[in-house]
Amino acid sequence: MKKLLFALLLATAAAATSSRAATYKVDPAHSFLLFKISHFGAGYVWGRFDDLGGKITLDPSNTSKDSVNFTVKSASVDTANPKRDEHLKSPDFFNVKQFPEITFVSSKVEKTGDNTFSVTGNLTLRGVTKPLTVTVKELGTGKGMMGETRTGFETTFTIKRSDYGMNFMVGPAGDEVSLTLDAEGVKQL
């Protein structure tokens, strides 16, 4: 009887270990959220957010249990022009004092290829939450300087800023914003 119980415990532990989800903390120093927006239809203004963080949970045995959440400090918007950055932080655009964070929380992750996923979730910008589905490419996994496991993902998607109440100067400055997120996560022990 004792042997049977021990065997059952061992089997349960082994099963739990093999299906244990790994959590990766987004490394802000090696993660980038870039955007570009049409300017007078003549060119693009490029920018980035310097302060972002988040968590990626990956379950190798069951992708449906994977999850992603990201938080971006909207005041960290940076277009390499301080005056323009001030304007972007104002109520005309991000209104960073009232809406200091932009968040994405996944609700469904599906594996669509060898290294691609379809991630559906809710994007909250300026207090407006809307569903968003993006295609994410897994870039690879490697070991860091301290032996830590790092994994990287990349996605490019487009949103309409007017959907989120950012209506100022739609036309001269494009309504569609193209975003690229390049995130590197460090596996948490």
Binding site: H87, S90, D92
Partner: peptide
């Protein structure tokens, strides 16, 4: 208000 960086205000 224009100097404050918000053209809308």
């Amino acid at each position: 208000c224009g100097l404050s960086s918000s053209a809308a205000i």
